[in-house]
């Protein structure tokens, strides 16, 4: 029985994630079309909403071609590794208090580790294709991912310092009074830039720069194995937006509803309205709305900024973002210990 429940729980997380991946591609095309004064896809389904499924069907029905000199096992294993580890990150996401698949005490580390392993998929796929375009693309991508992971993990250190826990739900619950966006606003900007780079998105999409490297590490991948890369890329975009909303926007908590509760002093009442308000104040819809807004910003950034050069990408990471983050890593513990501020979740223990 417990196995069936585990499968149902897995499906309840993975299926919405994959549906969202399909519709993020559509939203990207529609939003970018509107920003570029075009109509965008509008033929398949209502307002072109089913375009993603038509594209997926086309890719799945196509014949795949593997290069003769490629290392076939690694060639197919690369995309599979990337997709599996992109989806594994969804394990520790809390949709509401106590609503998760797995409650890791080191949940944040788990997400970091899983996203780090996904890099190997890209490296293997690029190397095994036996193509210079793919190899160059994978080298670029790996260098980029390793560099920007440093930024992300340094920012995470500070969030962990303030909340006093590595558990994802504890980090969310610590933000009931105030979201971490307020004390860590500059770091949120750094983290968001790092997120864009970590997911290989424009203006940091040098790994798959169409005009230079054809399609980067996935040049030789076609048809159904290309779908794996495609799904992995968008699944990791949604995952990193969820991570952003958990770390800086309070995840499933609705700060506005909490403010209304405290303003109207509803906490003492036990009416149906109060019950309804308390359900709304920490429900999955809050997380979904915050994530969608961040995904929109991802698309907006792609439509607004031109691709930067590779040396600029690296110098932005090592000479701009990392010094800012390290300055904060030094400053914040000094402030916390100087003002005798306890980690927020002391009250939750």
């Amino acid at each position: 029985m417990s196995n069936i429940i585990s499968i149902i729980q897995g499906l309840l997380v993975i299926v919405p994630a994959l549906i969202s991946v399909a519709f993020v591609t559509i939203s990207e095309r529609k939003v970018m079309a509107s920003m570029q004064r075009r109509v965008g896809p509008n033929a398949v389904g209502y307002y072109g909403l089913l375009q993603a499924f038509a594209d997926a069907l086309k890719l799945l029905l196509k014949e795949y071609v593997a290069p003769t000199q490629a290392n076939i096992i690694l060639f197919f294993l690369g995309p599979v590794i990337t997709l599996i580890f992109a989806l594994l990150g969804y394990l520790v996401i809390p949709y509401a208090p106590g609503t998760f698949i797995s409650d890791h005490r080191l949940g944040i580390f788990f997400m970091l580790a899983v996203s780090a392993i996904a890099t190997y998929g890209i490296l293997l796929a690029g190397w095994s294709a036996n193509s210079k375009y793919a190899f160059l693309g994978s080298l670029r991508s790996t260098a980029q991912l390793i560099s920007y992971e440093l930024i992300l993990s340094s920012v995470l250190l500070l969030v962990i310092l303030l909340t006093g826990s590595l558990n994802v739900i504890t980090i969310v619950e610590s933000q009931k009074a105030v979201s971490l966006l307020l004390p860590l606003l500059p770091l949120f900007i750094v983290f968001f830039i790092g997120s864009i780079a970590e997911t290989n998105r424009a203006p940091f999409d040098l790994a798959e720069a169409e005009s230079e490297l054809v399609s980067g590490f996935m040049t030789e991948h076609s048809a159904s194995i290309f779908v794996f890369f495609f799904l992995a890329e968008y699944a990791s975009i949604i995952l990193i937006c969820i991570l952003n909303s958990i770390l800086f926007f309070g995840g499933y908590l609705s700060i506005i509803v909490f403010s209304i509760i405290s303003l109207l002093d509803l906490s003492r009442e036990d009416t149906l309205f109060h019950v309804l308000i308390s359900i709304i104040s920490s429900s999955p819809i809050n997380l979904a709305v915050k994530t969608s807004i961040l995904v929109f910003v991802f698309i907006w950034v792609r439509a607004s900024f031109p691709r930067i050069r590779f040396d600029q990408l690296m110098s932005v990471c090592w000479l701009v973002l990392l010094p800012i983050t390290i300055a904060y890593v030094i400053l914040l513990p000094c402030v916390v210990s100087g003002l005798l501020i306890n980690p927020v979740n002391i009250s939750l223990l």
Partner: peptide
């Protein structure tokens, strides 16, 4: 997207 995540 919001609907699917909420239902899930």
């Amino acid at each position: 997207i919001i609907g699917s995540f909420t239902v899930g």
